[in-house]
Design a protein around this nucleic acid. Sequence first.
RNA 1: GGGCCCAUAGCUCAGUCAGGCAGAGCGACUGGCUUUUAACCAGUCGGCCUAGGGUUCAAAUCCCUAUGGGCCCGCCA
Length: 532
Amino acid sequence: MTEIRHWADVIAEDALNLHKNNIIATGITPSGHIHIGNMREVVTADAVYKALLKQAPDSETKFYYIADNYDPLRKVYPFLEESEYKEHVGKPLSEIPCPCGEHSSYSDHFLDPFLKSMNELGIHPEVLKIDELYKSGFFKDIIVLSLQKRDKIAQILHEASGRETDESWSPFNPVCEKCGKINSTIVNSFNADEYTVDYSCKCGYCGVASMIGGGKLTWRVEWPAKWALLGVTIEPFGKDHAASGGSYDTGIRIVREIFGKEPPIPVNYEWIMLGNKGAMSSSTGVVISIKDMLEVIPPEALRYLIIRTKPEKHIRFDPSVPLLNLVDEYERLRDKEDLTEYEKRIIDLSKSEGVEQSIIPFKQMVTIYQVARGDIDRIEKIANRSGFNESRKLTENLAENVKNWLERYAPPFAKFGVSDTIPVQAASLTDCQRAFLKSFADELLKHEEPSAEDVQKLIYETKDENSSIHKTMVEYFGKPINASAINPKDFFIAIYISLLGTPSGPKAGWFLTSFDVDFLVERFREAAEYKP
RNA sequence: GGGCCCAUAGCUCAGUCAGGCAGAGCGACUGGCUUUUAACCAGUCGGCCUAGGGUUCAAAUCCCUAUGGGCCCGCCA
């Protein structure tokens, strides 16, 4: 069997066989909440980027994130105020007011949180906002070239995609000076020396627009233009662009035949499905934003989800119990001693560069958090007692994740509440259970800091007639108890009833060590006496 | 109508590019305490690699075909 290699390393090697220096680009249109599916593109790119850096440390490697924020607003999305945004349909996203008023534009409203999330995931590309590129004149010469070769481009679009372009079609769409829209103008002529076009707009206005910030290339031309100008050698994109006759197909021909450059190596990736609700999609409303996601899942676990799966496979993302298992799987692998080369690589690529995260397992925090009832001081104390010594900030971050998970996605069986007072269910305890609780309390007092194993052992020792807990139990019970009639199960139930009011709970030994011994002793003694 | 991707253990998936003994994690089961308790440790079980053909000394892997699933082609990755 040949050595197993990670997909990112394979892609990087392919790229290095073609180019010494590689430029990887990715980007999205910030027209709505940027969801976890979009993150796949960025994490995929980041993985390949890291692989390139590792395989060719002496090459020049770049990673661009391009925000397509000059695209027009296509419609009034369900999350927008109809009355307020109707007039903005057709305008470039960067020129539309922010929905919340706190960002400089509509596109920044969605882009800013995404950039923050990327940062939390340890992804640090060079961010390019395409409106700024247009406004700086970055595209001006390629716009002229595109206008000059308009007929040839139209022919390519027709041949490769079957798309018909009419007389008024232009590779460059000016922004109307009067109505601000970019999708309703027709180019009548252009001036290559002045970098301007004459246009007329459906709103009735006719004017002159600059190729420097006065409009944009149409998407199918803009994409190859970006490849040509930035020298992009690798680009991940979703299958919508990958379809035959899709924009990658036409892009290949345009970049070669019009711009005289080679297209990037494509990295096709599949979509992320949300539970059983289908594909994530901004337009159908099946969406969990990255921000929402990072509020419940530690960043490295989210990276892990994407890193461990080959790009062409679906990822089914379910924030309830499967999320718990996903995080658990990542943490186990992270903490494992003897990793295979492949596992090591997975962990390497999943690590968020420059971002530290808690070493406390998520599942354990789920219990700690609930025992401490969210009190961070107590959480920290319990964590310390369990042998986790890390900065409070890290513990706090994880506690915050767990809090949100419990509130939003946790199934009932994962939740419990430690009552302040004796649960009324304690009334149902049998005399034998009460005797056990009293003697159990006595035994706990004998230990300074009982370990989980100590506790577990104590409960089982009740069956041993020579054990001290058995003897005190008999004493409290008032008459001999036949060892074979003792069922530790009843005692577990007594413990859970006393603390939670339910007959079951987290693994007892470990659960109990999350409490102060004094509290337990008091509670068990109280429960033993409790009569409604 | 045209095109893409996926199918391997109960579950999630590696392994397919470059053919060479069928793999991991989780779950389940057993033991660690004669007796489940959401932790931990050790071990065991578990597969006609979707089906049918072809190429080959040799196929999960390469080539056809079929079936099932997820999508794309009116710019949501």
